[in-house]
């Protein structure tokens, strides 16, 4: 049984007895996991490699559905509805729950087209509206000044840190409720990393954020809640300020003090 702190704020997501089995696997990778995600907060998922944190993250926007044979069990509640049902409208879900990947994934098109991509998918055609929302998204991602004179240029000309900000702009342009970050800075240099961390802290005003990181110090710096996972289970979820000073589970303490992982 995991030790979970009580969350007083409203919840963005609630995971209930969730189990996940990869195609062809003998045993589930995630076992009977229950966990709340607080709204307008940053929840970090930490744990050693293979603990299931990325698997869990990718379940929130049903990325696993892209590859046949994966099985979900249990519930993940978003806006009081279980999003794991086969009938769930995945396209609508992914507009509300966006994702940023480890390697920056700028599309092979111009910077402006990149940011507008999600909006165009939704059917927004009005050129003025697109232009304004592109500018707003790039400003919110703290990259507007750097790219405003080269919106028509191909996105591949940007540096790694800039491309990651571009991906963030692209994701927030569709105004999601939740943003999933999958080790967003592990491919970046320390300065770009610091910039992205600051940005993530700012974004939580508008979105609920879940960030998977193998860098514990990043989780400590940035998050409000931290969940420690081990071997497919949630061991402990606590307020970051408390968890890193007084973890309640021995496993958590061992991981944080570097005894393994």
């Amino acid at each position: 049984m995991a030790t979970i702190v009580e969350i007083t704020e409203e919840k963005a997501l609630q995971v209930k007895d969730f189990e996940f089995t990869y195609a062809g696997a003998d045993a589930p990778s995630i076992q009977k996991l229950t966990m709340p995600i607080a709204k307008n907060s940053i929840t970090a998922l930490i744990g050693p490699s293979g603990c299931g944190k990325t698997t869990l993250l990718r379940s929130f926007n049903r990325m696993h559905d892209l590859y046949p044979g994966n099985k979900y069990e249990g519930e993940i509640l978003f806006k009081d509805k279980n999003i794991l049902t086969p009938k769930e409208d995945l396209i609508n879900l992914r507009i509300q729950i966006g994702m940023i990947f480890q390697k920056p994934t700028a599309f092979p098109m111009s910077i402006a087209d990149n940011v507008a991509y999600g909006m165009k998918l939704q059917g927004i055609k009005n050129k003025t509206e697109l232009k304004d929302r592109v500018e707003k998204a790039l400003t919110d991602a703290a990259i507007w000044k750097e790219v405003k004179d080269r919106l028509r240029h191909d996105a591949s000309g940007l540096s790694g840190g800039q491309q990651q900000r571009l991906c963030i702009a692209r994701a927030i342009a569709v105004e999601p409720e939740v943003l999933l970050f999958d080790e967003p800075t592990s491919a970046l240099d320390p300065i770009s990393t610091a910039g992205i961390e600051e940005l993530v802290v700012e974004l939580k005003e508008r979105v609920s954020i879940i960030i998977v990181t193998h860098n514990m110090q990043q989780a400590a710096r940035v998050s409000d809640y931290t969940g420690f996972m081990y071997m497919g289970e949630l061991i402990e979820l606590g307020r970051t300020e408390e968890l890193f000073v007084t973890p309640k589970e021995r496993l958590t303490e061992e991981y944080i003090t570097g005894k393994f992982g």
Partner: peptide
């Protein structure tokens, strides 16, 4: 790279658009 496809899917794109546009 498969992450490029995933990024398009993650924005809510249907498969044929992912293939053609990305």
């Amino acid at each position: 790279p498969s992450t490029l496809r995933e990024a398009a899917f993650a924005l809510g794109a249907p498969k044929y658009k992912v293939i053609i546009q990305v």
